[in-house]
Design a protein around this nucleic acid. Structure first.
Lengths: 200, 200
DNA sequence: AGTTTTCGAAACGATCCCGTTGCGTATCGT
DNA sequence: ACGATACGCAACGGGATCGTTTCGAAAACT
């Protein structure tokens, strides 16, 4: 049967090592704040220690390279435990906080904040791939809180999420270099917010 | 007396019209999402209908041009009225919301969010000039609320501000194109937050 | 009128990046 | 071994922007 052959694969196979180096270089640069517009294949190749040919052989354009690179980011979304809404929210915000200091994860917010207008196609794919799953997980925590009666029944989940996530973003992105986000910010944020969110 | 002379000013005076056109072009482009790195003097000159010479004669480098341009942004910070904390907060967030749709004011968040890492010097000046005054005005509203007893005495003003401003930023910047910020978001945001902020 | 400075426009050589091609070498299957 | 493919590298012509310089015209003061 002509099933999907392993495609014969004659000749020298493509180097996974080179591929990883290319993706890593791409993500690192984006994480450092390089815009998609500014990101040059030439710079990626140099940084990855790879010939331009090796990149062009795999990706036909820059946008594809960026999307594929971002797609490799499988984010460590913590499994919400049974510790209640407060613990779950603190966990999620804690992940955001720790991620903000890691180069590799900075590219998430960098893309989300900077490229929406200029690369709508890239942004749309990125949004479905990375942003929405995380938002949904966050929403789910709040919805569960409402379901268990821990949170007010009439809580505006969307507004609540934007307050918590937005506050975290505000600190990680707007504090500027040299203004580290304090360790206990997630707790303080959640406690302050829950005063108004709680039922009863 | 050799006071600060009007410097004699022989020869043809510099055109204020050209200067304004240059600054306008700069702000417009930044508002449209052009990075400081990407901003080319050549493009500014073309857009302003001006020779490059005219720009280089006034600003020795791009960074100075950007800072000076940003400095012309005197922001319409609304005078907080006597309507209480809720009204003042809604007013401020409303300004943020309406500004997000104006090209000229988008450059504020664009600079604040994107350029901190790569142009720390520019960012520092921008922060002192634009960001801090606004934050201080916002903080002041909250502090006054605490003073009048309208808000809890132990309210963490910094956290409260980050929740409100961050939520607004979250909606204006992270919703992506084609997701307009609803008119009543400021009210909803403030009402949700005040549930936890209020005294009593 | 004469001097001085600015104006917009054009051109300079230099540098960067584009996407492609050719090269010699390396690493697979057969 | 041998053919096929991928590798890193260097070079190509083309385009954009850099910061500077030169130019003739315009606009102020003495």
């Amino acid at each position: 049967m002509t099933t999907i052959q392993e495609s014969a694969a004659r000749g020298r196979p493509r180097s996974e090592r080179a591929e990883k180096a290319i993706v890593d270089a791409t993500l690192d640069m984006i994480g450092e704040g390089v815009t998609v517009s500014e990101l040059s294949i030439e710079a990626v190749a140099t940084r990855a220690g790879v010939g331009k040919t090796t990149i062009y052989r795999r990706w036909s354009n820059k946008e594809d390279l960026v999307v594929d690179s971002l797609a490799t980011l499988r984010l460590p979304m913590p499994e919400p435990g049974g510790g209640g809404v407060r613990a779950d929210l603190v966990t999620y915000l804690g992940v955001m906080r720790s991620e903000s200091s890691e180069l590799r994860n900075r590219c998430i917010t960098n893309i989300a904040l900077n490229e929406a207008d200029r690369f709508p196609d890239l942004y749309r794919r990125f949004r479905e791939l990375v942003i929405e799953p995380r938002r949904e997980a966050f929403r789910e925590v709040l919805r569960r809180g409402v379901a268990t009666g821990e949170l007010r029944a009439d809580l505006d989940v969307e507004v609540a999420m934007s307050m918590l996530v937005g506050a975290m973003l505000f600190h990680t992105k707007m504090s500027g270099p040299g203004y580290p986000v304090p360790d206990d910010l997630p707790e303080r944020l959640v406690d302050e917010a829950l005063r108004g969110f709680r039922a009863g």
